[in-house]
Amino acid sequence: MNMCFVTHKVRKGDGQGRVNYEVILEALRQGHYVYIIASELSDELAQHERVIWKKIAVEGWPTELLRNQIFAIRASLWLTILRNRIDLTIVNGFTAYVRSDINCIHFVHSAWLRSKYHPIVERKSLSSFYQYIYTRLNRSLERMAMKRTRTIVAVSEQVKHELKGDAHIEGNRIAVIRNGVDLEEFYPRHVDRRELHLSEQQLYAMFAGDLRSSRKNLDTVLKALVSVPEIHLLVLGNTKGSLYPQMAADLGLGERVQFLGYRTDMATWMSAADLFVFPSRYEPFALVLLEAMAVGLPVVASSNCGAVELLTNKAAIIINDPDDSDALADALLRCAADRRQLKQMGEEARRLACQHSWSAMAAQYLQLIQETALHKAVPLPES
């Protein structure tokens, strides 16, 4: 089969890009030929003899809004040129103006626009107005793209619920395939904390995410930490332009919170921690939660993260309101009170994560691709 993937990135180190990478790798293992329309492609795939890459360069355009439009226009032109060579087309959200066979949804702009946590609700500024315009336009374009596809993949039941309720997509058109995790990179291991300049006796929680975004909700973690002196916090993420280092200092947490910056050795730092805290205000999946589980970390998270569907109360403490710093502090105190139970929770988290390898996820995608190809003879309804 000749299949075509239309997406911005296909590489490790990127959530959606990693999903594309693993699915394409599995397609190649099964002997298929793959056309890739993307701006970025990993070297090993670019050099594969059965990969044809049509690169769309978008650097130089000043905003993501413009870059996405340029990408979609050029991708549509390539799909028109290649249509007689392609058996099946797989896209990610709005990436082209033409029809597709499978559309994989990792973020629902309709749901984000109505969220009380959208930046336009929290504050009125030039930046939040731009994000409002960006989200509103993508909501319309995303809905158009989903009307012009045969099958929709949601990365969680949460996303499926949002697609039905906010984007008005029929449930029978939606398949749920959750993201996977690299079990060879993220696994329980012993780390000598002294080499990382950490205390062997101290209890460490970890947070990882975009430190410029209030959506990830580090502010509530810092507020909760004030009431939990037993726990120190390791924060992974680029601090450039972030308000959180100053916030930690203002709360008197300067000695208990370590901002480690962007790290490529995340699995090592996760292995040095005792638990993972991630009360995101809105997260369609949250791959980082699954990675923490795979390392063997118990999780404290909000119910707004799609990945909590994979967890049980034996592996995690889930809070309903991500802004409730008292509830989060109580959850952290419960973790600090019983290290033996914390260890058992981590073991259960690892067991659950092992059910969601990248290879298992990719196999589900390829089965769906094959089923969709068999039914492609049925014409799509006119939009």
Rank of each mutant, 00 (worst) to 15 (best):
P245C: 06
N68Q: 13
C335W: 13
F94L: 01
F107L: 08
N179S: 13
R139G: 01
V300T: 04
E162R: 05
S156F: 05
E142C: 03
S110Q: 10
R263S: 08
P322E: 05
M1V: 08
G261P: 08
A373Y: 14
Q258I: 12
Y244W: 05
Y204M: 09
R351N: 02
N68F: 13
K314E: 11
H118W: 07
M3H: 07
K55M: 09
P119L: 10
W61K: 10
S156D: 09
R74L: 14
E49R: 12
L203C: 12
P322A: 06
A111R: 07
A273S: 07
D323Q: 13
Q30W: 11
A249H: 04
V98T: 13
A249M: 07
E44Y: 05
Q246R: 15
P188M: 07
N68D: 15
A27H: 04
D338P: 08
L196H: 05
L163A: 06
G171V: 08
L65H: 07
E22Y: 04
V10E: 08
Q69P: 00
K223R: 15
S140R: 13
L366Q: 15
M345R: 13
I56W: 01
G252C: 12
S214M: 12
G93N: 00
A46M: 01
I105S: 05
N320H: 11
S227N: 14
R351F: 01
W358H: 05
E230K: 14
N172H: 13
G237N: 06
P284T: 00
Y262F: 15
A307K: 12
A154L: 03
Y262R: 11
A72K: 00
Q16G: 08
Q344P: 09
R11Q: 04
V159R: 14
V299N: 01
P381G: 10
T149Q: 09
M345W: 15
L77E: 11
A46G: 03
H232W: 14
L234H: 02
A362R: 06
G15K: 10
H48Q: 10
N84P: 00
T89H: 02
G60A: 00
T268V: 15
N138R: 12
I36S: 02
Q355W: 06
V308F: 03
V23I: 01
K12Y: 03
Q364C: 04
V91A: 01
V34N: 07
G13W: 00
L45E: 08
L333K: 15
V155D: 13
L183P: 15
K240L: 11
M293G: 15
H161W: 09
A286P: 02
D321R: 00
D192R: 12
L137V: 12
T372N: 10
L141C: 02
E255Q: 14
R74K: 14
S302G: 05
A301V: 09
Q364N: 00
I317N: 02
Y33P: 04
D274V: 00
A349L: 01
K9A: 04
N238M: 06
G31M: 06
T63C: 02
A248G: 01
V191Y: 11
